[in-house]
Simulated scan of single mutants.
Amino acid sequence: MPRLVLASQSPARLATLQAAGVTPEVVVSGVDEDKALADAAERFGELDPADAVLVLAQAKAEEVASRLEEARDDADPDGSTPEADGPDDEGPTDVIVIGCDSMLEVDGAIVGKPADADAARERWRSMRGGKAVLHTGHWVVDLRDDTAGGTGGTIGSTSSTTVWFADIDDDEIDAYVATGEPLHVAGSFTIDGLGGPYVERIEGDHHGVVGISLPLLRELLAELNVPWRTLRTP
């Protein structure tokens, strides 16, 4: 069974995978997001939101993959392959790395996590009664060696879901922001937490709003010859 490494510290992404029967290891990336976006804009020009999240997902997945490869090389300098890989090995040879990033697009502008409670309140006042698009970039890096069926592939795609918000009043917004939840998530809301009652409907994959689209991830893994069923924890 391939070992999945999630290059994200998001509890929601981890919980979504676990609910689907997959228990990944978590290795948080050290990517400077502002620099990664600036570098990409310099190379490719202005990025739209769907491309921006894909750039960051790729940067996170590849940064973690690079660290794991370095650990493998350091642990096995002669290039030999260990007979078996346990969960505590520093140099796994059967790993698939997944990076994700999410941004909310409101009226054509990208919004991430709010700077503070005032910013979260203002964002909700602008979103209430309206709609926005939640973009989540996914990037997958195949670090498996030949004996584990590795392809050496590195691929990605973006899930985009339209979200319609309830027309809530200022008191409701103040109460929601006071919970602290909107301060820690892109777009200042969740669909799977305290913000759920304020989302009237969506168009697209609701998992993508949480932060990781399971159907899209299954398709990306299939392109790397990794059937979803092989990831489920026995």
Rank of each mutant, 00 (worst) to 15 (best):
D174M: 05
R201T: 12
E172F: 02
G187E: 09
G130D: 01
G193F: 09
W164Y: 12
S126K: 04
A148H: 15
I110N: 04
H135Q: 11
P182G: 04
A166S: 15
I202Y: 14
T147R: 15
H184C: 10
A178S: 12
D171I: 01
L194I: 14
G112A: 06
V141S: 13
G187F: 08
A115V: 14
K131I: 02
T190M: 09
T179S: 13
V199N: 00
W164L: 07
D146R: 15
T161Y: 14
T136A: 07
D171E: 14
R121W: 03
T162R: 08
W124V: 10
A119P: 05
R201D: 14
M127N: 08
T161P: 01
S160K: 12
G196P: 00
L134K: 02
D146F: 09
H138F: 10
A166Y: 08
L194M: 13
I110M: 14
D145C: 08
G180P: 06
S188Q: 04
T190Y: 04
I168L: 10
A186K: 13
P114K: 00
T158N: 02
Y176Q: 01
A178I: 08
G195Q: 12
E122K: 14
G196I: 02
I168P: 02
D116N: 15
G195R: 12
W164P: 01
V140K: 02
T136P: 09
T162D: 02
A132K: 07
V177H: 00
V133H: 05
L143N: 06
G187C: 07
V199D: 00
D145V: 03
G149K: 08
P197C: 11
S159C: 13
T154W: 02
A132T: 14
E172W: 00
W124M: 12
T161W: 13
H135V: 09
G137D: 07
D171M: 03
G130R: 13
D118L: 09
W124N: 05
A119W: 01
R123F: 11
L194N: 04
V177A: 04
D192C: 11
R128K: 11
D192K: 04
P114T: 00
D142H: 05
K113A: 06
G112E: 09
G156P: 09
D171N: 04
L143G: 07
A178H: 10
R201Y: 00
D170A: 07
S188C: 10
T154I: 00
M127W: 15
V141E: 06
T161D: 07
P197W: 15
A166M: 10
D192V: 08
S157N: 12
L183K: 07
V133N: 05
G195W: 13
D167A: 10
D174R: 05
R123N: 08
G108E: 07
R201Q: 14
G150C: 09
V163L: 03
R201I: 03
V185L: 14
S188Y: 10
M127P: 01
V140A: 04
A120G: 00
A117F: 04
K113F: 04
M127S: 02
V199F: 12
T158F: 06
A119C: 03
L194T: 07
R201K: 15
T190C: 12
G149M: 03
G204P: 02
